[in-house]
Design a protein around this nucleic acid. Structure first.
Lengths: 357, 357
DNA sequence: TTTGTATTTGCATTCGAATGCAAAAATGCT
DNA sequence: AGCATTTTTGCATTCGAATGCAAATACAAA
């Protein structure tokens, strides 16, 4: 039985062949055996761009289908040194901005053939742990929309794991960033507010160590000054609904003699908390007695109860950009860093009106 | 196998082995070489419960630390057939219930040493794709909080991938489930509403093919009947805010002569949409002219603008249970299925009041 | 047909950690 | 010390797919 090795079709005489154990998942060898080809051929069939004849492809695919074969991404990852996993770091805190970003990024990653390995991060130790996990799982890259210290970033850098920062960056260290700079829109919005007669404003900021908060606050302060609007009170929040509410109370305490006519909140969640506090607790009508604006443009801000005037981030485009940048850096890790800055957009809403006289 | 280049014996020839290429990540062999032990020893050091002497452990750990060695989860997964990845399927649609569940589950998985591979699913084709991806990535299990057809489930079953359903299940097929059955609380709440004088109600349901919606709707219908409250209108929504709003319009159309005094929405998002529509568009005061209740107990429902009366799911405990069940099934795939049913809790809020006379 | 070139295919090895088995070392017991 | 027993350690192999290289084939030109 001189079986031609090139055409070793599984014949009845091949009784030493283990018949695909029930339940065990098929490997490229199983497919190769069934199709009567080599394992390499099977591998090449599933690797786009490989040199393979259409006849071969057809034969292999038929066998693969029969065995429900799908290449094992784990094994593939081991040999190619590409896991196709991207760690996505978001804050788990209930700021609705994050879910929106997360879902968008996940979709974009998916479209690029990558999977999102999700990590929720609340503090520095969490980040520490996440970095180790990411290292273990050999993620191809990290998209970070949560806090990360410069030292932590340097660890990733040293390990040559590409990182894209989402709405945060280090000013004094090269890094790849997607960012939304609402400077223009802040001016635009403050101009409107000025035209509406507002002369006394308050600001509810985020945590002082937070980049986004700092940047936005500076823009807002600059713009208000430019239009001659006085900041009569300023409170610090932590981006949550509750801190928006308590922020307003603090503002009230700071401006005992006369409340400002306008509160600028550094994100939408706080703006909503602020608005609710104004109306439900302080009995101030929004916008008639108090105008409120926010930042981000989260979906919920547009609900009829809020109709928040805000500056929206182009989350869709930013997510797309972030994924594009991570794939780029995975392909060519040595290319120089890039910072993509998007503009915001003023979303007019019912939360602002002419200042009361 | 011929000459294995990775022999453990340190020899002169090994001395001029490339001394850890800058940037290349350290492997267990590198650590073994530096510590002067075998690769197996290194492996055992990082596998809890392995037989190893403290002297050896110390030596290896020192070397590991020096090289920043962390075991490669990909390689480990290949040999152990455990990826430590769990696919989490949620709907990407903006129903804020999902982010809450997702974040909770992710945290619980993390505590159990597992990572969440996130998939957003919108339709059946998505699920199809996700199942293939999960297969490729050798996930240890799937937690599904999104739609999955019985056929799709059977594929996973055949492939022996454990699945835990979150708030959905197949009645006529054995499966592992975490579920919240609000039957008791529906009765409790309807009793309250009855005592408040409500006699004419409307219901906004979810999609008819959705289990959660069907179950809740049936409970609500049964309870209302039991208390002699008439259902004067019923609209179908899709769990979104918008569909709550349009649902109320439909109810208004259906009950041209007289609006009901009560609308029961099958989830909170729709209840919020409904409430906003009632107040902002129809000019109906909530709760004075119209009482509204929801289901889920999402954080946002408690904002001052809504103060939604609702039946809350114990998401924390449910997530914990889901993760526990997935790990159990990974350990012992042949054990029988289990269905863990949690009760809800009535969250009193300002969205209900005595029925207008 | 023959020769030369381009394309396919298979072989053998590789990625990095885990593990059964046997050898070696440490420990206990008399 | 001698021997039995337990614990540690190393060796060699395994997981499943990708790939450099060489062999085999198909194709083109002479």
């Amino acid at each position: 039985m001189a079986n031609n090795p090139r055409k070793n079709k599984p014949s009845e005489t091949d009784d030493n062949v283990i018949p695909l154990i029930k339940g065990r998942r098929a490997t490229s060898y199983d497919v190769a055996r069934l199709a009567g080809v080599s394992q390499s051929a099977v591998s090449r069939c599933f690797k786009p761009g490989s040199s393979i004849s259409s006849k071969m492809r057809e034969r292999v695919m038929k066998a693969a289908k029969e065995l429900e074969y799908q290449p094992n991404a784990i094994a593939r990852g081991l040999i190619t040194q590409r896991s196709n996993l991207v760690a996505v770091l978001v804050s788990g805190r209930l700021n609705l901005y994050y879910p929106e970003v997360l879902f968008k990024i996940t979709e974009e990653l998916s479209a690029a053939g990558l999977r999102a390995l999700l990590f929720t991060v609340e503090n520095e130790e969490d980040t520490e742990m996440v970095i180790e996990q990411a290292w273990q799982f050999q993620v191809d890259g990290v998209i970070s929309a949560s806090h990360m210290s410069q030292d932590q970033y340097k660890i990733l850098e040293k390990r040559q794991i590409p990182v894209v920062f989402f709405n945060r960056y280090f000013a004094d260290h090269p890094n790849t960033v997607v960012y939304c700079d609402p400077a223009e829109q802040v001016n635009e919005l403050v101009a409107q507010l000025s035209a509406l007669g507002h002369r006394r404003a308050a600001v509810i900021t985020g945590p002082s160590e937070n980049m986004v908060s700092r940047e936005r606050t500076i823009r807002v302060q600059g713009s208000l000054a430019q239009f001659g609007i006085e900041i009569v009170a300023q409170a610090q929040g932590d981006f949550t609904y509750e801190s928006g509410a308590s922020g307003l109370q603090e503002i009230k305490a700071q401006s005992a003699d006369a409340m400002p006519s306008l509160v600028i909140c550094i994100n939408d969640m706080m703006a909503m908390g602020c608005m609710d506090e104004a109306q439900s607790v302080l009995g101030l009508s929004v916008p008639d007695e108090l105008s409120i604006v926010g930042f981000d443009g989260i979906g919920m801000g547009q609900f009829a109860s809020y109709e928040l005037t805000t500056i929206r981030q182009p989350i869709g485009r930013m997510s797309e950009a972030a994924v594009k940048m991570i794939t780029d850096r995975v392909e060519r890790p040595d290319q120089s860093h890039e910072k993509r800055v998007f503009e915001g957009a003023v979303i007019p809403g019912g939360s602002i009106a002419r200042a009361p006289t």
